[in-house]
């Protein structure tokens, strides 16, 4: 990222329900577990990504996931767990 980009990044209005593309790999905090299958959940703004194969007991950990499908109208998506990046903030 160039210096200028670093300064201008984020300039603009951002949706409260961000969208994701299929195949996109992102790093997010695991924010909880839910649904009948107890899938891992990553709430990004008011969008929710379900991660069925997320390891249990990792709430608050930062994980890398691959988005498999995304429903733009409902702001929900399905993702696959790839790896744990960190166990979460110390503070």
């Amino acid at each position: 990222m160039s210096v200028l980009q670093k300064y201008l990044k984020g300039f603009g209005l951002r949706s409260s329900t961000p969208s994701f593309d299929s195949g996109q790999e992102v790093s997010v905090f695991l924010t909880g577990y839910g649904g009948s299958d107890g899938a891992g959940l990553a709430r990004v703004g008011d969008t929710t990504l379900r991660i069925p194969d997320a390891p249990v007991g990792k709430e608050g950990a930062r994980v890398r996931i691959r988005v498999e499908s995304f429903d733009d109208s409902k702001h929900v998506g399905e993702a696959t767990y790839l790896e744990t990046v960190s166990e979460g903030s110390a503070f």
């Binding site: 984020g10 603009g12 209005l13 951002r14 961000p18 992102v26 790093s27 905090f29 990004v44 703004g45």
Partner: peptide, 9 residues
């Protein structure tokens, strides 16, 4: 408004 808002992703 979400001005400047960025997500972890």
């Amino acid at each position: 408004t979400g001005f400047g808002l960025e997500y972890t992703s």
